[in-house]
Structure formats: structure tokens, C-alpha cells
Simulated assay, not measured.
Amino acid sequence: FLHRGISARNFKRQFTLADHVEVKGAIFENGLLVIDLQREIPEAMKPRRIAINGSVSSKLTQIESKAA
């Protein structure tokens, strides 16, 4: 029976985060690393609402035609 335990040498694990993701905190507890991430989208990239006025102008005319 051969038991190979956890290696004693140093190691490095690296992650690339998506755009606009920030690390808010990290906790190493009971051999488990927990990382808090938060996505913050800048105001320039958020969807906007544009108000459209529904008033009818007197200059507009409606063209009527027969159905084909």
C-alpha cells in the first residue's frame, strides 16, 4: 500500500476574471479558499431608456391602401 499525501512544495493557481469583475474579499478557512466576486457594469454600458413622445403632429398624413 503506497500513500502519497499532499505535496509539501509551493504551488500557484491563477485565474483570469471577466471584464468588470472585482474581488471584494477572500477567506481561507479549513483548507478551503472562498473568494467573493462582484460584477460592476459601468453606467456607460448599462441599457438606457429613451422616452418617445406619442403626440401626433398635424403635418403627418396617413396613406390608405387596399389590401393585396
Rank of each mutant, 00 (worst) to 15 (best):
S65L: 09
V23A: 00
K46Q: 15
K59P: 02
R49N: 00
S57Q: 13
H20S: 12
I52Q: 03
K24D: 08
I50E: 13
Q62Y: 08
A44H: 11
Q38D: 05
I27N: 07
G54Y: 04
L60I: 08
I41V: 15
Q14F: 08
Q14A: 14
T61P: 00
N53L: 03
A44Q: 12
E22A: 06
G5C: 05
R9W: 05
D19G: 00
A18G: 14
P42V: 02
G5T: 03
H3G: 13
F11E: 11
R4Y: 01
I27Q: 07
Q38S: 10
K59A: 10
D19V: 01
V56W: 03
I41L: 15
K24L: 12
I50R: 09
I50W: 06
G25V: 03
A26C: 07
K46F: 02
I41C: 05
P47Q: 05
A68F: 07
V23Q: 06
E64N: 11
S7A: 07
K46M: 15
L60M: 04
T16S: 13
I6V: 08
E29A: 05
Q14E: 15
I52N: 01
G5S: 09
E29D: 14
I35D: 09
E43Q: 07
E43F: 05
E43T: 08
V21L: 14
V34Y: 10
R48E: 01
S55N: 13
F28N: 12
A67N: 10
T61K: 15
S7K: 02
D19Q: 08
K12R: 12
R39P: 02
D36E: 10
A18M: 09
A67F: 03
N53H: 08
G31S: 04
K12E: 12
A68E: 10
I50C: 06
E64K: 08
E64C: 01
V23N: 00
D36Q: 08
L17N: 13
N10Q: 06
L60E: 07
I50Q: 12
H20N: 15
D36W: 01
L37V: 14
E22T: 10
E64S: 04
L17Q: 13
I41N: 02
V34K: 15
R9H: 11
A67M: 12
E29T: 07
K12A: 11
V56D: 04
R48T: 00
V56Q: 01
T16Y: 03
V21T: 06
I63C: 02
G5D: 05
V34R: 15
A8T: 00
